[in-house]
């Protein structure tokens, strides 16, 4: 069993690393880019939404911060997005703390509602302060030739590798945390907050920590997205739909499972792209409708996500935490 897993992993790695070298169609590269991006966002969201079961529907806030901050710094002050990105992540961490502190006193649907409201406030503000953000028109990033310092590349491949790197880093981080104190504490919070408190778990601290980490990951994803697409607007990077899409990727794959978001992103992104190809040409709304449909189907038929289909082949996977 272990060998099969190892071989699959190596094949996957070769495929991921070699893909842009073999395939040069930028559309296909872009699809895989989106898979990695959403997988990374999902793995990050899973930290708080899955392991900690705090259903955040406001992750677009951090994605938007991660997108807007480096773009604005570059356009207005010619600051390299490598530095601007750090500023964006810093601001996302701060925003997560400010939002989490009051919101985590709420439980269940109240928490989800509060994060939706926070997300909508962010979007409304981005639309309102047109002077800075360009409002609904958004901000295009003009291309001034290949320039790694400004994250400007004439081909899709470098962005592809950026997203892949983000995914690998985030995945390894969460894989490590899952087995550590934070992971166990989050599981305790997911199961029973009062009981966790009674065992000395400072639930507020742990939830904040997971939320902030998760926000930082979303911000990093936002930055990579912004420079890849070279255009950002409030409806694209700060809408509730984005927050729902991130959550959907995780639910479809398997909530609270390490590989869940990765599988989820692959399935969801590929399915929506197919829908776009076959239906999108006729009508808009096809791909988002697909998200909704997938969410409904998975919740009704497989609330544990598609990853649970593999459990029967791998009993080890089921015995989380066992040796």
């Amino acid at each position: 069993m272990k060998n099969v897993k190892m071989i699959a992993l190596i094949c996957g790695a070769i495929f991921a690393l070699g893909f842009p070298l073999v395939v040069h169609t930028s559309y296909y590269i872009h699809i895989l880019f989106m898979v990695y991006l959403f997988a990374a966002l999902g793995v990050g969201w899973n930290l708080i939404g899955g392991y900690g079961a705090q259903l955040s529907l406001g992750h677009s806030i951090f994605f938007a911060i991660g997108a807007y901050v480096p773009v604005l710094l570059m356009l207005n002050f010619h600051i390299s997005p490598l530095i601007g990105g750090i500023a964006g992540i810093g601001l996302a961490l701060l925003a997560a703390a400010l939002i989490g502190l009051p919101c985590f006193r709420l439980r269940g649907p109240y928490f989800a509602l509060a994060t939706i409201a926070a997300g909508e406030i962010t979007r409304t503000l981005l639309l309102h302060f047109q002077g800075v953000t360009g409002g609904a028109n958004g901000l295009p990033i003009p291309f001034h030739g290949d320039d790694a310092l400004n994250l400007q590349f004439s081909t899709k491949a470098p962005y592809y590798y950026l997203a892949l790197t983000l995914l690998v880093v985030v995945f390894l981080l969460v894989r490590y945390l899952e087995k550590e104190k934070v992971g166990l504490y989050l599981a305790a919070i997911r199961e029973d907050q009062d009981a966790a408190e009674s065992l000395g778990v400072k639930t507020m601290h742990i939830k904040l920590l997971a939320f902030m980490l998760s926000a930082a990951i979303a911000a990093a994803g936002g930055q990579i997205y912004a420079f890849t697409v070279a255009y950002i607007d409030p409806d694209g990077v700060a809408s509730i739909n984005l927050s729902i899409e991130i959550a959907t990727v995780v639910i479809v794959g398997g909530i609270g499972r390490l590989w869940g978001p990765v599988l989820g992103a692959a399935v969801v992104i590929l399915l929506t792209e197919l829908t776009n190809i076959y239906l999108g040409a006729m009508r808009s709304g096809a791909s988002l409708g697909m998200y909704g449909l997938l969410l409904i189907i998975v919740i009704l038929l497989r609330p544990d996500g598609l990853i649970s289909l593999f459990d029967r082949f791998d009993p080890e996977l089921n015995k989380k935490g066992s040796k």
């Binding site: 166990l184 504490y185 599981a187 029973d192 778990v201 989380k320």
Partner: peptide, 24 residues
């Protein structure tokens, strides 16, 4: 320390994980 009137273990975790969380 305290226990609850209705038993409240973390149902989806193993016995060991339950106790490790406290031991941490």
């Amino acid at each position: 320390a305290r226990t609850f009137q209705s038993s409240r273990p973390f149902l989806n975790l193993t016995v060991l994980e339950n106790v490790v969380i406290a031991a941490l």
